[in-house]
Design a protein around this nucleic acid. Structure first.
Lengths: 199, 199
DNA sequence: TACGCTACCAAGCAAGCGCTTGGTATGTAA
DNA sequence: TTACATACCAAGCGCTTGCTTGGTAGCGTA
């Protein structure tokens, strides 16, 4: 170990936080199963056995990564929404925030959250699901409000699923040097809900 | 082994085809890394060693699953489109076909294609990518045509990415017993492109 | 000085993994 | 009858894996 990779946004500067940051990055790059505890330890600059002083099992690390990233991004969405006055602008804020979390400062952990879900035990899945429900409720509230205003006809639940698919999929193609930036992409996604406004 | 699970649509009724069907199902359920060659063999009713009479490595099995499902679904989309006379109807056919492949008769293999991509060697990824490019061109042709007709303003490339996200994500929520069926869902997705028509 | 807590090292164990090996049964064609 | 290919079995090898164990260094408190 010569250099330390930067921490993922929202994770604290402690042995635990460094471990989680390194783990998230490796899980994202190679997948949970192909990441060895030895690799996580090496990246953090400790011996593989020492890792179990901080976590009881490899799966515990995965769960901790997921839990932290859900909590952090739930709070971020709440903060972003609080500054907006209309339902339409709140939805744009949500889309912006989710994009930010997926292709921005917490991307490693967010991708892990989506892709390594089944590596959790059923019990742990249930716990993570409870946290995700809170996150999802933020979306449903705004979408339901817009639906009642007549902004779109489709079911708000379905609409959320479609939006979730659009944002999650960006992992597979979005690049910051690409032809479209995050702000413009958020706008385009918003238009999939409320239609392309004439102007 | 007492009973044989049904084959996945497009796979032949041979030792090889049965192996691929069983493997796809297991890969989907537990992931590539957590599926052992012993489990694949057991599901097919043979010994684990016998499996290597048909394939050189476990990764070869994964690649074969992916190759078969891309080829099969590319041809299916072509057939479905050939019956349609307008670009809008062709796009609906594409959406319908992709949904069918993801939540219908080839779902196991399609999900594996999306989720286990990085388990392929770089060389194999390149080969699979070439096949996927052909598949994607079908979408780009139709979307470009619609874009030129003024059906939507956004970039056709971006639009394809958004659609791909919407369809792929259905894995995580769509159920055949649910409140919306495949046909209606395809219609709703189409409207994300061309807008909700009044009527 | 003694104590206890946190953070770590060095070594290694048991289990599970992909894959190999050497051999057998069956079917088809010369 | 011989020859060869296909499809399989039984056994196990060598390696990697998550995790355990027993011990140590540094630090703050009494």
């Amino acid at each position: 170990m010569t250099e330390q990779a930067p921490l993922i946004h929202g994770m604290e500067d402690s042995p635990r936080g460094k471990l989680l940051s390194a783990a998230a990055r490796l899980f994202r790059q190679h997948g949970f199963d192909r990441t060895t505890v030895r690799a996580i330890a090496r990246e953090t600059g400790i011996q593989s056995g020492s890792l179990f002083h901080h976590f009881d099992s490899k799966e515990d690390i995965l769960f901790a990564v997921m839990e932290e990233v859900i909590r952090f991004n739930t709070q971020r969405l709440r903060d972003l929404m609080a500054a907006e006055s209309t339902a339409e602008r709140r939805l744009l804020a949500l889309i912006r925030g989710e994009l930010q979390s997926i292709v921005g400062d917490t991307s490693e952990a967010m991708i892990v959250l989506v892709q390594e879900w089944r590596c959790l035990s059923p019990d742990r899945q249930q716990q993570a699901l409870a946290l995700r429900d809170i996150y999802e409720q933020l979306w449903l509230d705004v979408l339901t409000e817009l639906h009642q205003q007549g902004a779109f006809r489709a079911d708000p639940f379905i609409m959320r699923r479609l939006l979730n698919g659009m944002t999650s999929w960006t992992t597979n193609w979005f690049h910051h040097e690409g032809s479209v930036d995050m702000e413009e992409l958020a706008r385009i996604m918003l238009e999939r809900v409320i239609g392309e406004q004439r102007g």
